[in-house]
Design a binder for these strands. Structure first.
Lengths: 257, 257
DNA sequence: TAAATAGTGTCTCTCAGACATTATGAG
DNA sequence: CTCATAATGTCTGAGAGACACTATTTA
């Protein structure tokens, strides 16, 4: 399908419906994994050419919506994820959208941000079209250095915050492991993301009570003693636990207006 | 400021950056209130003219982003809220974005959806520019009849779902009442939104323990006996309770992929 | 048999849910 | 005095958190 053939009559620039200028529309994807005991995020390096904004800086994978190829925003996010990682059916959730006059030097732009969880083992990194570098970077490192392109440091911070928040009461970390996995492996994934240790007994009780894992045999895990292997019963259903993992101090939380 | 004056050189329609067509960009606002014992949402009637999509149908207030007036998406949402209700500082939170080829007959479009909570007493309904009708409609009514414009029935359903979910463990209903309010009034607001009764003792304990309300005297409420009046200590801080209001059956929850 | 980790059992203390009781103002 | 509702008190069962203990495999 030719991109220029579609409803070209309706896309005049300034005299467009009600005489409005259309903002740029992009999709960015925050792709998480757990690798080497750390929560990591996939970043791409912006091209070095001086015409491009933020040359050489690290950015989230993403780009313009292609109205000829992408039927929906979600499809666009899936396409971009596939292009960079080869992964086709990850956990993929919308984070939100960011838009404004000043976030992109090329003009008023709005980006739709998704976040994905993938097992590191499923990924084969694909170098970008313009020879851009693509790598995993621990989130602790990136959140420290604030030299990312655009407002991507904000987007990443929001994604990490959402992930950490949801991990307290959902089964999300299971999407970061290759199946089958053992309960100790899953527990370690929780601990890596939350940055604190979790009681083993309570973890097992809650996880098994939630009844979203199927036993698939015994596997000689990362230790001396072998462990029971599990697989998610339904990869399309995220489990929400009735309570949080550790109530602790968290009481207030900012927001709004 | 003239809308057509800004960066017109960068807005060529089809040969735009990388030769891509820009999608339409809109913002829609789901404005909730509690009125006459029911959760209600503000809807506007689409103009009757046959050139407009969905003539005469009910829609969420919203419209195109105006790159000349709106510096951010949030500012755009605030503007649209103000235009319809006169309210300037409500609770306002982003719900997400919906975009795709087929959701608007005028072309590939993406909408950024916000939801707002306002006390009914603060609102003076403002008729739209093209004489469109503006009214409160109970959400139970609108969720039943599925004849809304665009995909707005989906957006509304998502907003209601998000609101009901968050009400279980946050102080959001306080934003629906005019200040000062009494605890029984606040409890009734929770009950209206959740559609079930809440234990009075537990409600008071939790609410006061969260320590986000300031006493501001005694008021002769809606009943025989007068009650203590409260005001939110900080309207910019949403309080998250450590636990949900009634654990009940909710265990699983769909999502993803 | 020693070391390491998988997996289970037990105790306690907090707290939500339910329900009963008291307090206060209107008519 | 009666009624309606605000506000507080009491009891109980479920469950999280902490920690001790048992089980199983490798070396």
């Amino acid at each position: 399908m030719n991109p220029k053939s579609q409803r070209s009559a309706k896309t005049t620039p300034t005299a467009d419906d009600a005489g409005l200028v259309r903002p740029l529309t992009t999709v960015d994807v925050v792709i998480f994994t757990v690798l080497e005991g750390a929560l990591q995020v996939l970043l791409v390096q912006r091209p070095q050419s001086a015409d491009e904004p933020f040359p050489g800086r690290w950015a989230l994978p993403g780009g313009y919506v292609d109205v000829a190829r992408d039927t929906t925003l979600l499809a666009c996010a899936r396409r971009k994820l596939k292009e960079k990682t080869g992964v086709t059916s990850p956990y993929l959730e919308q984070l939100g959208s960011w838009g404004g006059r000043d976030r992109d030097p090329r003009g008023w732009s709005a980006t739709h941000v998704y976040f994905a969880l993938v097992p590191a083992e499923d990924v084969r990194l694909v170098k970008g079209g313009n020879a851009a570098d693509v790598t995993w970077i621990p989130v602790d490192v990136t959140l420290g250095r604030r030299d990312m392109a655009f407002d991507h440091a904000d987007l990443l911070a929001a994604a990490v915050s959402r992930l950490r928040g949801k991990v307290e009461y959902t089964s999300l970390p299971a999407y970061l492991l290759p199946e089958p996995f053992t309960l100790p492996q899953l527990q370690r994934t929780y601990e890596v993301i939350l940055g604190r240790s979790v009681d083993k007994s309570g973890f097992r009780t809650r996880t098994l009570a939630a009844d979203f894992l199927d036993e698939v045999g015994i596997v000689e895990g990362d230790s001396n003693r072998s462990a029971v292997a599990y697989r998610m019963r339904d990869r399309d259903a995220v489990v929400t636990f009735p309570r949080t993992f550790s109530p602790r101090t968290s009481k207030e939380c900012s927001a709004t207006s």
